[in-house]
Amino acid sequence: MRNPYTREIPKYTWYLRQGRYVRYMAREVTSLFIGLHAFLLICGLGALSQGEVAYNEFLAVLESPFYVVFLIVALLFVIYHSIAWFNVTPQAMPVQVGEDFLPGGIIIGAHYGIWAVATIVVLFLAGVF
């Protein structure tokens, strides 16, 4: 007689079973840091719109151990977002040239190249160098 047995998936802990699922969850959590940092910048924008005093106060508030730790963690996560995002671009947008598909490495490499240039431009505009 048929009597199939269904194994339940642990709803809260399923991703702990394999490294690839943990990496996936880490990738999804990068969004928290992107969102929080965007809100931080919007707060800065609000201060900027109120004038020089408010803006300088905002910059001073950032100079705290809390923000240093938060921003270091955030930096690691957002870099992970960039790497994870660029590494799957050949899957999301394969490019067919003639008959063949462009090797994934070229598409990924091009994105890393643009990332490097964009980073240098932003840092330059901010006056880092």
Binding site: H37, L41, L71, L75, V78, I79, F86, W115, V122, L123
Partner: peptide, 11 residues
């Protein structure tokens, strides 16, 4: 992916 790492670094 292109911009946020640089922006977080500046912050």
């Amino acid at each position: 992916a292109f911009l946020t790492p640089a922006l977080v670094l500046i912050t």
